[in-house]
Write a protein that binds this DNA or RNA. Structure first.
Length: 570
DNA sequence: TGGGCCGGCGCG
DNA sequence: AAAGCGCGCCGGCCCA
């Protein structure tokens, strides 16, 4: 499918291998034609970009079951080839196929909303229309991608999952998360005082600001929003601190500290998710974020504005199901360590991950050593795992990593190997083939020269916070690739889950996916379908497991709650 | 006044 | 208890 300048466009049926199966044709009403074809034989739609095209279809009431998103797949293929950041448009892909000069990508859609609006027939923006899609290029780029994908292990599934994810993302933005503005406003008023007029501080924040000043001395004024002023005030009080981070402040004995901690928490809520956010982002009882598929190198999603992936926990009481409906809140328990267990094929580790509480199952290995005092065996297991996956390992974690290494050598070695590859400047991949970016030219230069002479504490000349030494840069890259293999494979799994769940929910009818956050989904459903949705979530988790890992003994249990409001889940 | 960096913190 | 990975967004602040 190629969108034209107005409401029309061009189409051409393709065979499964991507070769043309019938002549191309044009239609004046593209959305209507897609709806009709979808009813007839529900093809896999091959198009340039779901993010650009599908919102318009959704607005016209048209949904499709399957697609192939050429830009997203091109991006995955470029990444696999170590060519991160090269243009991914269909034009660029076509130019590469023919050895022509490659045009740069246009800016992201949210920066040119008016140009985007011209697709599917908005005529109010006229001449600024995005370039029309070229059907012949779409056909040839798709065929080339099919060939490339077929040659890479796991990539067919990755391309399908990424494309299915793009459909989910657009639908999430269209349907929106049920959001009670009244609940939100009540919570803000309860915590901050009544909504202030103008740009004034809410009453509670102003009180705290005044008391903070007073705590540093009579007639003293400190802007608690200014870390620089807070640092100065503490230094003047004879209590120099390295930063004003909450955990630093907590260790300081001064009357301003509890006030500052409370201020920071409330000010954050007010600034990031206060009344201004509510005005901007909630309409008609729905919060409609713009998800960005492929926006994170690991395959996690990002969002544009609205901070959908950072909704504070206290605000979850504003997420309320419609009357007669419920929220099915499901999250994958301990996803990343389970992914590591399945990836590494570590027999003992996989057995521990075969059900229930993974960390508890590992406890035996971490019990009974006197060196690491206060922690429970379960806490030790968790700390060891997190250190292995994130590349931490100071203090007592060193010793716990040793336990992990001796008891679960294959799991340990899996992430160690990824870290070594990173330190050598090599690429690592998720199970399905999503590939990490190559190191920057600056990294190569720094690590090649092995300039390790400077004091690590010495600030860099330009004041930027980049590694001061080759050793730091190497370790940092190692931590990145170490984590990448786990985080990106977890993202593979989550995408497979989403695709499977979307298909099952479509079969159920009214239920809608309304939220997705890395390893967690919310489905909005009529109350009487709660059990069916719960079952669909479990079946999807199982399908994702099998698609990725085949016959692994590792389980991927979902913690599922059926609630009226998000805050009531767990 | 607008752009961009920084410190800080929300989420997984 | 904090810190190792991945993000987005805010206000403060500096500079053009």
């Amino acid at each position: 499918m190629a969108a034209g300048a107005g409401a029309g466009g061009g189409l051409r049926p393709l065979a499964e291998d991507g070769s043309p199966a019938a002549p191309a044709y044009t239609v004046a009403d593209l959305a209507g034609e897609i709806a009709a074809r979808e009813r007839e034989d529900a093809p896999r739609w091959v198009w340039a970009s779901t993010a650009r095209l599908y919102p318009r279809l959704l607005a016209a009431g048209v949904r499709v079951a399957r697609c192939h998103d050429l830009e997203l797949v091109e991006n995955l293929l470029l990444g696999h080839a170590g060519r991160y950041g090269e243009p991914r448009s269909v034009r660029a892909a076509s130019a590469r196929l023919h050895g022509r000069p490659v045009p740069p990508d246009p800016p992201p859609s949210h920066e040119e909303a008016s140009a985007q609006a011209s697709l599917f027939g908005d005529d109010d923006t006229g001449e600024r229309a995005a370039p029309h899609d070229d059907l012949a290029q779409i056909v040839e780029v798709h065929a080339a991608q099919r060939r490339a994908v077929a040659g890479l292990d796991g990539f067919a599934l990755l391309a399908a999952a990424e494309s299915a994810g793009s459909l989910v993302a657009a639908e999430l933005g269209h349907d929106g998360l049920p959001w009670s503005a009244a609940e939100h406003d009540a919570l803000l008023t309860e915590l901050l005082g009544p909504r202030p007029s103008g740009g004034l501080r809410p009453r509670r924040l102003q009180e705290l600001a005044d008391r903070i000043g007073a705590a540093f001395g009579p007639r003293t004024h400190v802007n608690p929003d200014s870390p620089a002023q807070i640092l100065k005030a503490f230094a003047a009080a004879g209590l120099p601190i390295p930063s004003t981070r909450a955990y630093v402040l907590k260790r300081v004995d001064h009357p301003a500290v509890p006030l500052l901690l409370e201020y920071k928490e409330l000010a954050r809520l007010h600034a990031a998710h206060g009344w201004a956010w509510l005005d901007t982002w909630v309409r008609g009882g729905r919060f409609r974020p713009e998800y960005v598929v492929g926006g994170v190198v690991s395959g996690r999603w990002a969002t544009n504005g609205g901070g959908a992936l950072q909704i504070p926990r206290v605000l979850r009481r504003a997420v309320v199901a419609d009357p007669g409906w419920c929220l099915v809140v499901a999250d994958a328990a301990q996803l990343e360590p389970r992914v590591l267990a399945a990836l590494a094929g570590d027999r003992a580790f996989a057995d521990a991950a075969a059900h229930g509480d993974l960390y508890a199952a590992l406890s035996d290995a971490f019990r009974s050593d006197e060196a690491t005092g206060g922690l429970s065996a379960r806490a030790k297991a968790k700390l060891a795992l997190l250190s292995a996956m994130y590349g931490g390992g100071t203090g007592e974690a060193v010793q716990l990593l040793g336990v992990l290494k001796s008891r679960f050598p294959d799991a340990f070695e899996y992430v160690e190997a990824a870290a070594r590859a990173g330190e050598r400047g090599r690429l690592v991949r998720s199970l399905l083939g999503r590939t990490c970016p190559p190191p920057s030219a600056g990294w190569r230069e720094l690590t090649l020269t092995g300039d390790d002479e400077r004091d690590p504490a010495e600030p860099t000349p330009d004041g930027a916070r980049r590694p001061a030494t080759a050793a730091q840069a190497l370790r940092s890259r190692g931590r990145f690739t170490r984590n990448f293999v786990v985080q990106a494979t977890a993202a593979d799994w989550a995408l497979a889950l989403l695709g499977s769940l979307r298909r099952r929910l479509t079969a159920l009818g009214p239920p809608r996916l309304v939220f997705f956050q890395h390893d967690e989904v919310i489905v909005h459903a009529p109350a009487e379908l709660a059990d069916a949705v719960t079952e669909a979530v479990r079946a999807s988790s199982e399908e994702a497991r099998t698609l990725l890992f085949g016959t692994t003994p590792v389980a991927f249990p979902m913690e599922i709650a059926v609630v009226d409001r998000y805050a009531d889940a767990k």
